[in-house]
Amino acid sequence: MAGPTTAQRGGSKSRNARSGKSARSGPSRPPGKRPARRPRPTRRRFVLWAVLTVLVGGAAGWALYGSSWLRATRVEVSGLAVLTPEEVRAAAAVPLGEPLVSVDTDAIAERLRKALPRIDTVDVERSWPHAIALKVVERQPRAIIEKGGKFIEIDGSGVRFATVDHAPPNVPRLSLEAATSPSLRRFGPARLEREGVRVAEALPAAVRAATRVIHVRSYDAITLDLTGGRTVVWGSGERGEAKARTLLALLKAAKGANHFDVSAPSAPAASGS
């Protein structure tokens, strides 16, 4: 059989050349050579960043603990009504001159609550760059007990927090008169006292200011003496909010009455003139 002619061999070479040129379009790459990669950070750069981190951290630590810029130099007190700033600062015992960041604010709050029972809550905050701020909320007396010519102040939760020489204004006096009542044996004087305070706490502010004495004769026999010779039968300390609303309505509706009964708030009564 005869082989390909010279023309055929030439045509084949021409087609192969055109096909190879099309397949290898673009710049040629040396055999075995991979694409260039972005150079990785050198060890020197890592060392430089580590040194910078240490220096910044050291400077911050020195500023917070070692310098005189951020130290506690004064104590700011707010929210006082009866206590004085001097009393609060003395009880707080803030370590002046210490780094502000290291002052134990929880310990300061604990010292204040322990030394000054009149304090109900206190927020101890760092006031940068040089102060410790004490935001005080004092307990408010809701009733008082007279004893030995002095007056014991009791807040709305039944805490006895102060003994004073003079009765605070517009605070009712609590009179425990349950010596012969079975309630005294059943509940005890402390529980009966809390019931009386519970009544005082339930009273609207205007009515509480007009209340002179809260008589606690038994658990469910509590009465009030108001200004102007008016009296109120309250009953027990239960349903205090409903009784307070009913009493307020009676006082407005029956202004000429001097005796009110809200022991059953759904069936109140007013009498007298």
Rank of each mutant, 00 (worst) to 15 (best):
R29T: 12
A109C: 12
A36D: 06
T246L: 03
H130W: 11
T53H: 09
R71V: 15
V56G: 08
E125A: 14
P99T: 15
W62F: 15
A162Y: 05
D261W: 00
G188V: 07
R212E: 07
H259M: 00
A60M: 14
S175C: 05
N16R: 10
A179Y: 06
A107N: 03
S157E: 10
P141Y: 02
V207G: 04
G256F: 01
E201I: 11
D165G: 13
I144C: 00
A50R: 07
V94K: 04
P182T: 07
E110Y: 01
T53D: 11
S175D: 07
A109P: 10
R126Q: 00
G149I: 09
L251E: 03
E177A: 02
R118P: 02
G235H: 10
G196L: 00
V216S: 09
K13V: 12
L52Y: 03
L134S: 06
A210F: 10
A81T: 11
W69H: 01
V122A: 00
E201N: 13
S271D: 07
K13S: 13
L96C: 10
K13C: 12
A270I: 01
V124W: 04
D220G: 08
P99V: 15
G256A: 05
S19L: 15
R43S: 11
V164Q: 06
G229H: 15
R126I: 00
R139M: 04
D123L: 15
Q140W: 06
R38Y: 08
G20R: 14
P31I: 01
G3Y: 01
L224R: 02
R126H: 03
L176R: 06
S78W: 02
L80I: 05
P141A: 09
E86K: 08
R173K: 10
R71N: 13
P4E: 15
A264M: 11
A257Q: 02
I154G: 09
R186H: 07
L192T: 01
P30D: 15
H259N: 05
P168K: 09
T211V: 08
G58H: 09
G235K: 07
G97E: 04
F46N: 05
I152S: 04
A210C: 13
K255H: 13
E241W: 12
W62N: 14
E241G: 14
W234E: 03
A190Y: 12
P189S: 13
